[in-house]
Nucleic acid binder design. Structure first.
Lengths: 347, 347
DNA sequence: CGCTGAGATGCAAACGTTTGCCTAAACTAA
DNA sequence: TTAGTTTAGGCAAACGTTTGCATCTCAGCG
């Protein structure tokens, strides 16, 4: 269907190999010939067939991106488009294509990744999540296939390239912010404990409490899958405690929005009754009411770095495993207030 | 690197062509041989090389998905992950891979699509938006490359396959809902007029007004790019009119959330002072305050149908162009209330 | 017993590139 | 002039499949 290298060769009066070398801008070809060949390519509307190229080079110019299971609503988190944007930007620059893999179940996702890897569809993979005992990660690790994780691997931390924030420190700092505001009863709401990111953010939270000499009550911790109805119950219980929290560290902006909504049902308002801090700084965090005090984790950069790191590894097989820490920044907005102002505003 | 068909052939004591036919489950191969070959494949861990296959078949098993420009925040709209979920589900079922294309500018996106098409990377393309004079669409159309649009093409409506909602009717119905609630001054806030979806939703809105004998004032219409600061100004002006609207039809849930936020700055509350209806029913619409009365356009299904339609077209070159209309459903929630109750609640 | 035809499998070309090696021409140095 | 060297480009194999056609083996038939 398309015009091939041979036709270009014929048109330019050279051999196919010469055309190939012109494409690669090989210095062995004289400028004059290059010019002639390029002209022929243009005239015939030639475009190389990547499949043929991939076949002989045994390298597609493509990277696979693995999203988490779409079974829950987590996929609707703007985190993903944003990280994709970062990945895509550098991939596009370096002329790499993006293959996407999602699925409802872990099994489906694994199938998709295997199709990518076994079928030689991609040169490397970016994992957009990190969870305990993840089949996909295990598969890639065993196959010794180039991959990088956005987040922190649960094991083999220094043999697996990954790009992450310093979530422990971020969480510690933002919790300390709450403490500085006078809060003493501070709860933590996070996602599944299987997620590395949840664990880190919880750790930072606990460190801050300990450092301030505050009790880190078990009752103050809630783990819920995003915003299931179970979450509602847990939050309800949290605020039925004899000494309910006045501050909340929540591991995701979208969760915060859900929690704020629930609290309102219980007659509690943010920040008047409860101060809330969270993570990610997605666009929504800025336009919701109240705008959220949150950790800007620089999602775009996470993606861009992951992309860059992976491609380096692809192009140089013995590039060492890297850990890249993307800086964060706390955005102070209106979901927090000093404890002593409590209720004044609504009084 | 990988195991090839030849090695399998040798192991099973047959010719490569036989192995190939076993893979294709060709009836010309006897059951006994098939069994033997399959065993060998399993033992050697054989997986076909898709590039080689693509080369001779000149068909990758992949479809390209084109997102809109990521320059604005539109990409953070949960619409995209959700529609991707639908696309991915049927693609995965039919063993197709997904190639993604994004870019900051239209130019970048076009480049990406051209790489996909010219390079023989994909068999077809799904366009996730429809805008006036879109280069990408024009390119695909001219190349006569299989593609389907999620949304409504601006021209060549019956030669371009597309899957869409009946946005005009949806908008008419939801506007009528506002009218039934007693609202007489109803404004419209939508995105760029270049977007087919905006036009349709505006049309439906106007039809409903006309049908009810209401004036469709020009002043009542605002077009703003998602939630830029320009939007704030426009909304401000809208509510500075001598007769400000008491009801608002907004073409996107996320925009609604932004608008609610702005209104609050102006001292106006939803639904007490202003009733709001919008479109899409993304997850956020349900957990925000107030939960939004919105048109559920069945995003997942839009994706799934698009995927199915495209693959049919790929597999049968002279499948006719189709138009698939996905049904919608109005979700009644708390962002609307009858006009006469106005201010009662806050009084 | 030879022929026909069906059934099962093999052969080899093709898909469109890349690339190691070879060669012709032109140049250089002595 | 000659031998050596560089330069520019061609030849052909290889990448891992698929597939049209050829081949082989038998069974059945007359």
């Amino acid at each position: 269907m398309g015009v091939t290298i041979k036709e270009v060769a014929k048109a330019a009066g050279v051999a196919p190999s010469t055309v190939s070398r012109v494409i690669a801008d090989n210095p062995r070809i004289s400028p004059a010939t290059k010019k002639r060949v390029r002209k022929a390519m243009k005239e015939l509307g030639y475009h190389p067939n990547v499949n043929a190229r991939s076949l002989v080079r045994s390298s597609t110019q493509a990277i696979g991106v693995v999203m988490p299971s779409s079974a829950d609503k987590a996929l609707q988190n703007p985190f993903f488009p944003e990280v994709l944007r970062g990945i895509s930007a550098v991939a596009h620059d370096l002329e790499y294509s993006l293959l996407l893999s999602t699925g409802e179940t872990e099994e489906e996702i694994l199938e998709g990744v295997q199709r990518m890897v076994y079928g030689n569809r991609v040169d490397g993979v970016i994992l957009l999540y990190s969870r305990l005992k993840d089949k996909v990660m295990e598969f890639l690790y065993e196959q010794n296939f180039p991959f990088v994780i956005v987040g922190k691997p649960n094991e083999n931390t220094d043999t697996i390239s990954h790009v992450d924030n310093d979530n422990i420190r971020a969480s510690r700092e933002i919790t300390e912010h709450l403490i500085e505001l006078g809060h003493r009863c501070i709860g933590f709401i996070g996602g599944s404990k299987d997620l590395a990111v949840t664990v880190d953010r919880m750790t930072g939270y606990e460190e801050a409490l300990k450092k301030a000499g505050l009790k880190a009550k078990k009752d103050y911790r809630v783990h819920t899958e995003f915003l299931k109805s179970g979450g509602r119950k847990a939050v309800h219980e949290l605020f039925s405690l004899p000494e309910p929290p006045t501050g909340l560290v929540i591991s995701d902006d979208l969760m915060s929005i859900g929690v704020i909504n629930m609290l309102e049902e219980f007659g509690l308002y943010v920040p008047e009754d409860v101060s809330i801090v969270s993570f990610n700084n997605v666009y929504m965090a800025e336009v919701t009411r109240p705008p959220l005090t949150t950790v800007d984790i620089n999602i775009y950069e996470l993606g861009a770095q992951a992309s860059k790191c992976l491609i380096e590894k692809i192009q140089n097989k013995n590039e060492p495993a890297k850990r890249i820490i993307v800086p964060f920044e706390i955005k102070h907005r209106l979901s927090t207030q000093p404890l002593n102002e409590e209720t004044t505003k609504r009084a």
